[in-house]
């Protein structure tokens, strides 16, 4: 069957900007080399300040998304507040590690803007990523995952710069994603980009090569 991580294809990238974060995904769902759907959104909102993407085996994308929706709703009811990006990252991580010896074939990417608190009045934009068993990395610049990860690393390393304003961050993450997935057979078929700022989230659907 080949690697479960490459069975359905798909990629996600997240980037940090000046008081903003962005997260983007392609829309392909395939069965190895056959394209099945071009509306498969791998990025989900937890709330309007926190998004996450789940590239990997499509069945696990659904299962993990359902699991996380349940856990976040329980958190919300018990705590009567929204989950922070950092806490959410640890929630995802423990959910993955729970299946240490029969893992979800997913490498999640989290992007969010933490809300100011008394202890931390000026929180920094937050992104994180994990391997399939929940080992967390919290980069300062960008996080990539999926079948185009190597291409995304190259494109992002060349295009990203510190302190991008929301509009420039949108352009940077879009160009990074599009040019990376155009060199990947298993990713592409359209894309969606979310740019999260303190006062709004801008979501745009990108037209791209359909081959």
């Amino acid at each position: 069957m080949g690697s479960p991580m490459e069975y359905n294809g798909g990629s996600v990238v997240a980037m940090v900007g000046k008081d903003c974060v962005a997260i983007a995904t392609d829309l392909r769902l395939g069965q190895q080399s056959i394209g099945v759907a071009y509306n498969f959104d791998k990025v989900v909102a937890v709330n309007d300040k926190l998004y996450y993407g789940l590239p990997g085996l499509a069945t696990d994308v659904y299962s993990l998304r359902e699991h996380l929706r349940f856990r976040v709703n329980m958190y919300r009811m018990k705590e009567e507040r929204e989950i922070t990006p950092k806490t959410f990252t640890h929630l995802v991580s423990s959910s993955l590690y729970e299946k240490r010896f029969g893992p979800w074939f997913i490498e999640p990417v989290v992007a969010g803007l933490p809300q100011p608190t008394e202890l931390d009045p000026h929180p920094k934009p937050f992104i994180s990523t994990m391997d399939t068993i929940g080992c967390i990395t919290t980069p300062k610049d960008f996080a990539v995952a999926g079948t185009a990860a190597d291409k995304l690393y190259g494109a992002a390393e060349g295009l990203w710069e510190p302190d991008l304003e929301p509009d420039d961050l949108f352009e940077t993450i879009s160009q990074t994603l599009l040019n990376a997935v155009d060199r990947d057979c298993l990713s592409g078929w359209g894309a969606i980009v979310h740019v999260i700022t303190q006062d709004k989230v801008v979501t745009r659907r990108l037209r791209s090569r359909m081959d």
Binding site: F40, A58, Y62
Partner: peptide
Amino acid sequence: YWIDYLGTKADIPYA
């Protein structure tokens, strides 16, 4: 809905 034995689901107009 296109669904395979893995539990992969695609919501598509033709399949």
